[in-house]
Design a protein around this nucleic acid. Structure first.
Lengths: 209, 209
DNA sequence: GGAGACTGGCTGGCCGGCCAGCTAGACTGG
DNA sequence: CCAGTCTAGCTGGCCGGCCAGCCAGTCTCC
């Protein structure tokens, strides 16, 4: 068949993308995009940070876009895991909202890159179909996942949703993303008033207060 | 005021940036960034679309970053004007929310670039101080402006805010931005459930329903 | 010895910035 | 009124650096 270089990232060998090196590359790319932006992340730097040669990025992923698509998938997993961990123990509306808010604050302060990554990937995805599909898929999965969690909490009588589980989940994410955008773009402004209003909003979405 | 004799020479004069051509350049850049992204917008293309030579962009703005900062300012004015026009006549909570939502939908569908612009500018601003300041300033102004409008509506007994005017304004923007992000990144998914939840939320923020 | 994993020099295209130079109009002085 | 001079506004060729992608070759393990 064709040379390995042009086929490497195809589904033919998903196992290859599970290798240690491939994982290191994806992780390095994720961090770099968060810090330097998508266009600011060059193969040279990323390869260096992953401790591999520049050529290997091509060997594994074929193109920058496909590498970014892989970052999207990886990021999705990370976010889902965090979400589950955080929401698992919350057993009333206030606790759930508090968990979400503190998670947000924590992320914005400790690892702004992780949030910036979303916006970077979004802007990049507007000019590449492959990436757009991956992003849409990520959002869908996260939304459905949180939707299921919310439905379970409602079943357990902990929340009383103001809408369908997925709709409420989406609205919560929208709120969180928008807040992060504000907090990141203007870190010096005190955001407590905004957070208070957002908390009231989130609680009303979950049928609390 | 525009007397040639009183014009300062080559320095970065603000008066110079009011000229017809400067305006055309800013408008073209705004559209281009919305469509092609910040890094995808080259001086060549933008100059062509503005009907001027490439050199003139440098002559007026000195660098790409400064041109983008100018786009931010221009965009701020546009958004403020739209907001006032839309909210002016709304005289109950439902009408206000309906106006905001339809404005959002309209913008996302008819001119996705205008919303994408925000995210483009945000990601670009993370790597340039000048731009970051301009963005922070834009957000602050818009927030305060909507805050004042909301305060006036509350004074008039139309709304009953669940928080400070500015806090509520910020939360509304956060919600809107986050919704736009979702709608743009996954245009094929039906967003009506999300919108329903968001509408309920927005109305509760304004003390309605 | 050969197949697959991996490397890094190379290239072609691109783009922001620079600057030498053009033009039109205003202002001289003769 | 007309050369001559000046200048602000504007132009576009050029350059230097950058970077994704290519590929010829090396290494390793079977």
């Amino acid at each position: 068949m064709a040379a390995p270089t042009s086929e490497a990232p195809a589904a033919n060998d998903r196992g290859k993308l599970d290798s240690q090196k491939a994982r290191r590359i994806v992780a390095a790319m994720r961090q770099s995009v968060g810090r330097r932006g998508a266009t600011g992340s060059t193969f040279d730097q990323v390869a260096g940070e992953a401790g591999v040669s520049r050529g290997l990025l091509h060997y594994y992923f074929g193109s920058k876009e496909r590498l970014m698509a892989e970052v999207v998938r990886h990021d999705c997993d990370i976010r889902l895991a965090r979400l589950d961990e955080a929401l698992g123990g919350a057993d009333d509306v206030e606790a759930m909202v508090a968990v979400l808010v503190s998670g947000l604050e924590d992320m914005v302060e400790r690892d702004p890159g992780a949030y910036a990554l979303i916006f970077e990937l979004f802007t990049a995805s507007r000019h590449n179909e492959e990436l757009r599909d991956a992003m849409a898929d990520l959002y869908r999965r996260i939304r459905e996942h949180l939707g299921r969690v919310l439905a379970a909490k409602e079943e357990a009588g902990i929340v009383k949703l103001r809408g369908t589980p997925e709709g409420v989940a989406s609205a919560l994410f929208a709120l969180g993303d928008g807040l992060a955008l504000q907090m990141l773009s203007d870190p010096d402004t005190d955001s407590s008033e905004t957070l208070d209003a957002a908390i009231a909003t989130a609680e009303s979405l979950l049928g609390g207060g």
